[in-house]
Computed example of a mutant assay.
Amino acid sequence: MKKLIFLGKILLILLICIFGGSTVMATTQATDNIAKINSPKNPVKLLFIHHSVGGHWLAHEKGGLVNELNKNNYYVNDVTYDWEPAALTNSFVKKIKRKILDKLGKANQGAYGIGDRTDIGHMPEWFLGPYSNLIMASIYTENRETDNYGDRKNSTSSIHLSNPDPSAENQIIMFKSCYPNTLLKGKPDDPAASQPRNLVHSFTAGSDEHTVANAKRVFNDLLSYFGKHPDKFFVIVTPPPRNELPEDGRIARGFSNWLVHDWLKENNYLLNNVMVFDLFNVLTSGHGSKQNDEGEEQGNHHRIWNDNVQHIRQTEKSLLVYPTKEGDNHPSPAGLQKATREFVPLLNYYYNIWSNK
């Protein structure tokens, strides 16, 4: 009987694949040592660069990501709106200069106000641009636990984790662009633009330059920085879905799939210090804004499942299924809690591979 049920499931999947377009998409990667999903033995410092959805994800009363990271021995710092390197204002003269730039309307240039710019088109500013050395040096040494979007400090987590060493650098750098970045123009399978970006000129998610081709080029260029810093572990989180998207999310879905499956392979990137978490896919299945499908076999997931790394899509949906309210693209706590439960074991797995544990 069990064999018949199993064969029936296989037949159903094949029929959907043949007659239902691209509804089912599944990849599994066997873990060579499932013990690698265990949390690090010693506390690890992680810094998350994000905007509002990231803040909601971290918050104790919403996504609870800080709690779960603390539970797994990760101490969390984050940077968001208004952040800029402290070196820009660490003296009286520099503070006066900053006020003058504010008055002149030039407060969001170079490294100033870089925390306001987290779109895909801004990423070269952080990692490759003329001020990137200053920006990233500050990122590595940043030790502020911000509390925008609710209480999300390690010190108030239900599973408290103390700063292991205020003088130690953040080992893990996590970057997430927000939901406007799923408004990509072009076609899902457009190749990366052939010309490198002008690193001084960035572009926003609302601009005509925010295309699949340009976004792919940005990520391809970033690998030159990641490759020069094998001592750091970089986590790329795909931009979350929206309630409404061009072609019902097909373009954004294609780009997220490229990041997960093709980005590193196409560039023959052989280091293991980069991972991608598909937040987009995770938030496109569930049972409404108040009930997620965490732990269920069916649905859209990116997780450790049956001792394998699994990235699976089993529904047609490519839009946000967890709106906080009508017209609001911020995912509800239920969706963000699903993301937390699926992300942290994956982080453990890939981090432990990188750290040779």
Rank of each mutant, 00 (worst) to 15 (best):
residue 22 S to M: 07
residue 97 K to I: 15
residue 269 Y to K: 03
residue 35 A to V: 03
residue 39 S to F: 12
residue 294 E to I: 11
residue 212 V to M: 01
residue 133 N to R: 14
residue 113 G to R: 07
residue 2 K to M: 10
residue 25 M to T: 04
residue 300 N to M: 04
residue 287 H to Q: 14
residue 114 I to Q: 00
residue 33 N to Q: 09
residue 83 W to S: 05
residue 293 D to S: 10
residue 53 V to F: 13
residue 233 F to G: 02
residue 61 E to G: 01
residue 148 N to I: 12
residue 286 G to K: 02
residue 96 I to P: 00
residue 238 T to V: 14
residue 298 Q to H: 08
residue 181 N to L: 05
residue 309 V to W: 07
residue 291 Q to H: 05
residue 270 L to D: 10
residue 75 Y to P: 01
residue 347 L to T: 03
residue 83 W to G: 04
residue 344 V to M: 03
residue 350 Y to Q: 14
residue 162 S to D: 14
residue 130 P to S: 15
residue 229 H to I: 04
residue 313 R to D: 03
residue 215 A to W: 03
residue 24 V to H: 05
residue 110 G to N: 08
residue 141 T to L: 12
residue 29 Q to V: 13
residue 149 Y to P: 00
residue 19 F to L: 14
residue 135 I to S: 02
residue 71 K to Q: 10
residue 36 K to S: 12
residue 51 H to N: 05
residue 30 A to N: 09
residue 222 L to F: 07
residue 1 M to T: 11
residue 355 S to H: 15
residue 215 A to Y: 06
residue 272 N to Y: 02
residue 337 Q to I: 12
residue 135 I to F: 05
residue 264 L to D: 01
residue 21 G to H: 08
residue 165 D to K: 11
residue 20 G to F: 13
residue 277 F to A: 00
residue 286 G to Y: 10
residue 75 Y to F: 15
residue 306 N to W: 13
residue 67 N to L: 08
residue 354 W to Y: 11
residue 106 K to I: 12
residue 254 G to C: 07
residue 264 L to H: 03
residue 212 V to K: 02
residue 91 S to E: 07
residue 164 P to C: 06
residue 20 G to P: 04
residue 62 K to W: 15
residue 350 Y to R: 13
residue 231 D to T: 08
residue 212 V to E: 05
residue 318 S to Y: 07
residue 263 W to D: 00
residue 303 R to A: 10
residue 137 A to C: 01
residue 200 V to Y: 07
residue 327 G to P: 01
residue 213 A to I: 02
residue 356 N to W: 01
residue 24 V to L: 12
residue 209 E to L: 12
residue 175 F to D: 00
residue 163 N to A: 09
residue 113 G to T: 09
residue 217 R to Y: 03
residue 231 D to H: 14
residue 55 G to K: 03
residue 194 S to T: 15
residue 72 N to A: 02
residue 147 D to N: 10
residue 86 A to C: 01
residue 122 H to V: 02
residue 152 R to V: 05
residue 170 N to P: 04
residue 3 K to L: 15
residue 97 K to P: 00
residue 291 Q to M: 11
residue 266 E to F: 09
residue 173 I to L: 14
residue 251 I to W: 07
residue 51 H to S: 08
residue 350 Y to C: 01
residue 209 E to Q: 13
residue 19 F to T: 11
residue 51 H to I: 03
residue 173 I to A: 07
residue 219 F to H: 13
residue 285 S to Q: 09
residue 348 N to E: 11
residue 297 E to C: 01
residue 115 G to S: 05
residue 101 L to Q: 09
residue 179 Y to T: 10
residue 71 K to F: 10
residue 164 P to I: 10
residue 71 K to C: 01
residue 42 N to V: 13
residue 107 A to K: 15
residue 143 N to F: 03
residue 332 S to V: 06
residue 238 T to A: 09
residue 77 N to E: 06
residue 55 G to N: 12
residue 42 N to F: 07
residue 145 E to W: 06
residue 94 K to N: 08
residue 70 N to S: 13
